[in-house]
Amino acid sequence: MNPETLMNILIATIAAGTPLVYAALGELIVEKSGVLNLGVEGMMLVGAISGFITMAKTGSLLLAVSAGMLAGALMAMVFGVLTLSLMANQVASGLALTIFGAGLSAFMGINYTSVALEGVPELHIPLLSQLPVIGPLLFSYDILIYCSFLLLGGVLWFLYRSRPGLILKAIGENPKSGHALGYSVLRIRYLAVLFGGAMAGLGGVYLAVAYTPMWVEGMVAGRGWVSLALVVFATWRPLRVMIGAYLFGGVTILQFHIQGFGIEIPAQFLSMLPYLATILVLVIISRDQHLIRLNSPASLGLTFHPEKNQ
């Protein structure tokens, strides 16, 4: 394998992992607030088609991203009303959201199958992108990938360095105490759920507008579920979520290179490998029972209503 090929694999890895980074970091915030939204796949799909249609109609990436985020947030709002205000079961509502999203996105995309987009141009940062090795590896992506780096920084700062982040985590641990302290549990959870929806939508937009760039029914292809798994297996820690996402992307890309090199591993086994490798590695790096208990939100998936839980 020559260095150039290796470089190409690494660059492709980052791109393949980016939709997972968005969706999983969004879901991480949701789960930290104590809500389990299994509808990531559905929100990604609706975000993807909304972004795709906007991009095809207007050609503006900014509008496409906004539309995708808005669509994801609207989907999340449906989930929020059901589970937070009406206190429906979160697992069932999340599953319903995924099924609904799959159908809705397919319906919205009827006239957009096999429409091709230009894609998003890579942003070569002057000077920096000309550095050997580091240049192409760090400074030659499209803007949405840079934004995902910013998102990681933002989430890290929010959770570990800011007061609102502290409140969010407290509510995820024990909503009753939060409520007793005078915080509006429902409002904070609504905001977290909406943020998660917007990020899932953004992940979908990246997939449909920059990565493929094409719309196909069901194109998210399980990435929403992988994002959910990433959050759990990374024990609710943003940096590990990111590592897991790139690992998944890397193995996805690598399987095609392995075939091209003529290494004799069955293609079906290779197709399975990204899932297996990601979960295995994350389980191994996060196997400290004490840390798992410390990081997992204690009230995850439990309904809470201020009037009922007095």
Binding site: T5, L207, Y211, T212, V216, A221, I253, F256, H257, G260
Partner: peptide
Amino acid sequence: FDPGKEREASEALIDQ
């Protein structure tokens, strides 16, 4: 029919 995978496979071939 999976444009994502087809693209990844095409890129891998071109890289090689």
